[in-house]
C-alpha cells in the first residue's frame, strides 16, 4: 500500500498551467527528496499533497483512498506541511507550541513542549521568549517542532533548512531522520547540495512536470 499515488496530476490556475502530468508513488517510511529550479512547481506539489491546493487534473490517492474522500482537518494533522520561512503565531514561543494542543482541545503539556525544544537544541527558557527576538534558525526550529509535537504520518518539508548554519542544519536533519526511522514518511523539497547528495529517493521537477532524466531511486 503506497502512502501516496499520484496519477497524471495537473494544476491550472485561471488559464496558467502550473503543473502537468505528474505521476509518482511514495512508499510508507520513504524519505523522498524533490529538487528542481525555482518556479518548477516543487512547493506546489507539496501544497497539493497537503490539500492546501486541489489538483485540476489527475488523481491523488492517500493510503489507497482518494485524497478528496478524507476529512481535510484530520488529514492535515496526519500529513503535516512545514513552510519555508514560517510565520510564528501570537507573541511567544509558548503560543506556537500550545497551538497544536489547542487544535486538539487538549491542555498544554509543558513537559512535552520542553522535550521538543531540547530535541532541536533549544533551551527551556526559549518557551517564554517573544517571537520577535528569535533568529531565523530558531524560528525555523520552533516551526518544525510545531509540526512534530503530535507526530504526523507524513511530514512535508518546504526548504526548511534554507539559510540555516551548518550546526543548525545538522540538528534539524537529526530530528527528521529520527522521525523517519520511526516510520514517518518524509517528503522534502530542497536546494541544498549536501541534502541532494545524500538523498536516496530523488524526484526532479522542471517547468511544472517531472524531469525523468534526473530521477534517482534506491528501491
Amino acid at each position: 500500500m503506497a502512502v501516496f499515488d499520484l496519477r497524471d496530476v495537473g494544476l491550472t490556475v485561471g488559464d496558467r498551467p502550473i503543473l502537468h502530468d505528474i505521476s509518482f508513488t511514495v512508499e510508507p517510511g520513504a524519505y523522498l527528496t524533490i529538487v528542481g529550479p525555482s518556479g518548477a512547481g516543487k512547493s506546489t506539489v507539496l501544497r497539493l499533497l497537503a490539500t492546501l491546493l486541489t489538483p485540476t487534473a489527475g488523481t491523488i490517492t492517500y493510503l489507497d483512498r482518494p485524497q478528496s474522500s478524507f476529512d481535510k482537518i484530520a488529514y492535515r494533522r496526519e500529513v503535516s506541511y512545514c513552510f519555508q520561512q514560517p510565520s510564528l503565531f501570537g507573541e511567544t514561543v509558548r503560543d506556537n507550541l500550545a497551538f497544536p494542543f489547542e487544535l486538539r482541545s487538549r491542555p498544554f503539556d509543558a513537559a512535552k513542549a520542553l522535550a521538543a525544544l531540547s530535541d532541536v537544541d533549544l533551551p527551556a527558557e526559549m518557551l517564554d521568549k517573544p517571537i520577535t527576538e528569535l533568529s531565523g534558525g530558531e524560528k525555523q526550529r520552533v516551526a518544525l517542532i510545531r509540526n512534530l509535537l503530535f507526530p504526523p504520518k507524513v511530514l512535508l518539508l518546504d526548504e526548511v533548512t534554507t539559510g540555516l548554519d551548518h550546526d543548525t542544519k545538522a540538528i534539524v536533519h537529526q530530528l527528521i531522520e529520527a522521525g523517519n526511522r520511526n516510520g514517518m514518511t518524509v517528503i522534502a523539497v530542497t536546494h541544498d547540495e549536501g541534502e541532494i547528495a545524500v538523498a536516496h529517493d530523488l524526484l526532479a521537477l522542471r517547468d511544472g512536470t517531472l524531469d525523468k532524466e534526473a530521477i534517482r531511486r534506491d528501491k
Binding site: L52, R76, S80, C82, F83, P86, S87, F99, P100
Partner: peptide, 22 residues
C-alpha cells in the same frame, strides 16, 4: 496581510474557526 499565517494554521490541521479566530 496574514495569508501565510492562516495557511500555516490550516496546514497544521486547524478548523476554519481556529485558523481565523484571531
Amino acid at each position: 496581510d496574514q495569508r501565510q499565517a492562516v495557511l500555516e494554521r490550516l496546514a497544521l490541521g486547524a478548523t476554519l474557526k481556529q485558523a481565523s479566530i484571531g
